[in-house]
Nucleic acid binder design. Sequence first.
DNA 1: TGGCACTATATAGGCAGTCTAGGCAATGCG
DNA 2: CGCATTGCCTAGACTGCCTATATAGTGCCA
Lengths: 116, 116
Amino acid sequence: MGNESSDLLRGTLTTLVLSLLASKRLYGYEIAKEIRERTDGLLHLKEGSLYPALHAMERAGLLNAEWVETRQGPKRKYYLLTRKGRSVLAERASSWRQFRDAVDRIVTTQPEGGTA
Amino acid sequence: MGNESSDLLRGTLTTLVLSLLASKRLYGYEIAKEIRERTDGLLHLKEGSLYPALHAMERAGLLNAEWVETRQGPKRKYYLLTRKGRSVLAERASSWRQFRDAVDRIVTTQPEGGTA
DNA sequence: TGGCACTATATAGGCAGTCTAGGCAATGCG
DNA sequence: CGCATTGCCTAGACTGCCTATATAGTGCCA
């Protein structure tokens, strides 16, 4: 029945990215690393998911991008929230909490019961 | 960018159904209703999602089904957890909590910041 | 009698977001 | 030189939830 953690991630990835970018500008590779580290490896979005998502968010006017040369290594594409991105983040974060609480209302309840 | 609440649901639907069936046997239509009511309409899985999901879970050995005639109206197909279903529920519920906490570690943090 | 709403299950086909798998380029290290 | 790491990117596959539709029995009301 598919990859569970990918499916859980679905619909949350955008919210996660927006949340990280709320406090400081980050580049793609860094976003992936942050999420991995801040969740002890539990969440790790693949680059094949992240970059297209970033592009979509940019197209949707949620992010602005800016290329930055580095002294060493490849150049980085930094992203930061637009005003619209900030307001979408607020909505998204709110729906996440509602969704989370709704699920908890059903899942966290664990009464004893018989087995078939 | 698609239907957000559907995407959030993705990967959780199975867990929700298993959770409900942990306490008592239910039929499909009833499951949908319960979830809608217990979450004040916030979560409502469509029949086109629910029935195929139930079939898949049955095929996977998580549920047993049993047809029951009713005095009035169409007959109902009641589902109840198998032993395997119960153990999968335990795993699923656990990953849900881990996922939930991981997301909260990133999303719930909302520092002030400038806008682009 | 016809029409509608509700209960109840079911399926086919579509959509979209994540993944797999690959490519490109620069740096540093053994 | 080969390899790991950083860093970005894309095409195509996968898959689970969706829309839309079908079937069928019941009850209600005009």
